[in-house]
């Protein structure tokens, strides 16, 4: 009986892993700050923050590394939370913004914007609109009605993603060569060109706060629409809300760093294996762990073969594909 008590005691209040992840996040951010193609000692980094350091170290740390690391962390968090939400929404562990074609829609819109020749806010705006259009398209074509439709939703997403892929190839084939580098950035996902990290942070924190009271409802939703409705959930309203949140998260992530794949798939999965499937834990844990993963991946991207720089999307895909296959192999998908 004692065993049962401890198990039950753990249901709904597992804050310890979250504190652990928070600590890990801080360590990751600090570590990333000390890494770069120009080596600076932790003391020099510290001095940059206290303002006692030389101007060069100041510039390197405060103007180059810090914004990029913050952008990486926020983008990783956004993508992981978006992935976790979509997996609950579709009751399918394969759901992810990249797999569902949302990133593809954003990329097509961004590529068209580059083709026309706009940049800055309009480019981000186009990517945002593209992401939303793609989500509306996928969900509209499926119609969220019954539990059985979640598989149709996933299949529709995969097909739409393939469609975006074809359009991307078409645009690349027609684009003038001098516009190709900027276009490839959207496709690979790259933090080298990330602008201000703050929009991503604001959205990440805001969404986490909105999700905080919804965690238990999402747990129930994960058991199917009918079961959720029988336990007192207004399924349609919750699904629509989650869908809007997930698309906004994805759209902001894509506008910050292009279409970085697999973070939304890998992070929630690994967390579920370790922490179980309580969304109240998984969602904030995804935000933190996703942030850590992308920060570390980007640190690798900018140092591993420096001065040559890799797009971070390559690193996440290299990590993501084997994980995906491993999960398939274990037969839990």
């Amino acid at each position: 009986m004692a065993a049962v008590n401890t198990v039950l005691a753990s249901v709904g209040r597992v804050q310890t892993p979250l504190w652990g992840l928070l600590l890990l996040s801080i360590v990751t951010l600090l570590f990333a700050l000390t890494q770069g193609s120009v080596s600076l000692s932790p003391y020099q980094v510290w001095q940059a923050f206290t303002g006692e350091s030389a101007t060069l170290a100041n510039t390197l740390v405060l103007e180059l590394r810090l914004p990029r690391i913050l952008a990486a962390f926020a983008t990783g968090g956004l993508l992981a939370v978006a992935g976790a939400l979509m997996q609950v929404l579709l009751r399918n562990p394969l759901a992810e913004p990249y797999v569902l074609g949302i990133s593809g829609g954003a990329s097509v819109a961004a590529l068209l914007a580059i083709l026309i020749g706009v940049s800055g806010v309009f480019l981000s705006g186009a990517a945002f609109v593209g992401a939303i259009v793609s989500t509306v398209l996928v969900f509209g074509l499926t119609q969220l009605k019954t539990a059985a439709s979640s598989l149709r939703l996933l299949l529709t997403g995969v097909v739409i993603a393939a469609g975006w892929g074809a359009l991307i190839t078409l645009i690349l084939a027609l684009a003038p060569p001098q516009k190709l580098p900027g276009m490839l950035y959207w496709l690979m996902g790259d933090l080298a060109y990330a602008g201000s990290p703050w929009p991503a942070w604001v959205v990440l924190v805001a969404v986490c706060l909105i999700l905080f009271p919804l965690g238990r409802s999402l747990n129930v939703l994960g058991r199917g629409a009918l079961q959720a409705a029988s336990l007192g959930i207004n399924v349609k309203r919750l699904e629509r809300g989650v869908f809007v949140l997930a698309s906004v998260l994805t759209a902001v992530a894509v506008t910050t760093a292009g279409s970085v794949g697999f973070v939304g798939l890998v992070v929630p999965h690994l967390l579920r294996m370790v922490l179980g499937n309580d969304q109240r834990i998984i969602l904030p844990a995804s935000a933190l762990a996703g942030g850590c993963l992308l920060t570390l991946a980007d640190t690798l991207a900018r140092t591993v073969i420096a001065p040559e720089q890799l797009p971070v999307g390559v690193i996440t895909a290299l990590l993501g594909v084997p994980t995906f296959l491993l999960l398939l192999h274990r037969g839990r998908l």
Binding site: L56, L60, P181, R302, A306, P307
Partner: peptide, 10 residues
């Protein structure tokens, strides 16, 4: 296409 900004700035 992808500059090592840190090295360039330094």
């Amino acid at each position: 296409t992808r500059l090592d900004m840190e090295r360039l700035v330094s």
